[in-house]
């Protein structure tokens, strides 16, 4: 409740109106200030679960998504098996038809075999995603060096 003199109330109303105007963006354009850089929009970490499996963990920021079919994996010093990708959400795209995307948190299991004596693997994961506001990021490469766990015989 406001109990001040009328001129102050008028001034406050004027200010309120100005703030309202300012809250409406001048155009529907996206500014880069509204967007996260890809490494923050698509947070990534990885670890070796055991001597034969890597686990990749993603946290996709709200308002962003990754395409399920755009992942590519490469490693030095190890042979990678077929990645186990969880089912994604279905998205109808005007150009690409029915596509699967990931939002929020998800994990990818990646089997590997490394020769005896290898203790570290450099993993490179390529992914590609977009923001709901209507922009996409070029394919982004996460690089991580992982210590290989040797299970006890």
């Amino acid at each position: 409740m406001m109990h001040g003199p009328p001129e102050r109330r008028r001034a406050l109303h004027g200010l309120g109106a100005l703030l309202l105007i300012a809250a409406v963006p001048p155009a529907a354009a996206v500014t880069d200030a509204d967007l996260l850089p890809p490494e923050r929009a698509f947070r990534f970490s990885a670890l070796a679960l055991d001597a034969g499996r890597l686990e990749l963990r993603y946290t996709v920021a709200p308002g962003y998504y990754l395409y399920r079919d755009k992942f590519r994996f490469q490693a030095d010093a190890a042979a990678l098996g077929t990645a186990v990708l969880p089912p994604g959400q279905s998205r109808r795209d005007a150009f690409f038809g029915e596509v699967e995307i990931y939002r929020g948190r998800f994990r990818i299991l990646l089997p590997f075999t490394a020769p005896a004596g290898v203790t570290r693997i450099e993993l490179r994961v390529l992914s590609q995603g977009c923001a709901d506001v209507g922009v996409c990021y070029p394919p982004y490469e996460h690089r991580v060096e992982l210590r290989v766990r040797r299970s006890r015989a």
């Binding site: 880069d32 967007l35 996260l36 850089p37 890809p38 996409c136 990021y137 070029p138």
Partner: peptide, 9 residues
């Protein structure tokens, strides 16, 4: 030149 997140278009 302002596209600090390298996005498209």
């Amino acid at each position: 030149i302002g596209n600090t997140v390298s996005a498209l278009p």
